[in-house]
Amino acid sequence: MRYLLILLLLTKFCCSRAQNVTVGITMPSVALLDLLGNGSTDFTLSSTAPSEAGNSINTTSSNLGTWLIFTSAIASGFSRSIKGDVSGTLPPGIRLRLDISPYTGSGQGFTGGNSIVTGNVYLTNTATSFIDNIKGAFTGIAYGSDGFKLKYSLEVQTYADIRSGTSVLTVRYTIVDN
């Protein structure tokens, strides 16, 4: 009987049959934005004088060579937006229009009302939002197929203010927490 008791004790107390391991991972916040150009993101827009008296100047010059790409990781319940502004002085009487095409590409995070283009904007010295409700998303990095295609163009704002001359501007984009 002594051996039986020993066996019983061994059975009851010697061994644990389940063990736990805790696994954890921290996913950080990420906010990165970039521009892809066809060699360069610099461009020149110009207006041309009319050839016949009484006609308006021609402002049909535009640039379609720049794509905006970004990566965003953010905590649940929060979102980001992308804003654009210019540093420098716009030509008098002229405004710089930015048209943003809907997202295309191999990325994710652009369905269900996320990372949507809220509208085309005129770029001024005050930052204006044009992509909003950005949560977790990445555009991809292939020039010409991934991201948001940008179109810059000139428009006459106040004809009487227009003067001949050249202006150099810098367009700045920022991704910001809402």
Binding site: T22, V23, G24, I25, S29, A73, A75, G136, F138
Partner: peptide
Amino acid sequence: LSVLLPAKSYSTTIMYT
């Protein structure tokens, strides 16, 4: 792992039997 997941710390338990 993906940026599509909310940024935070995740943890779980693995049990051996």
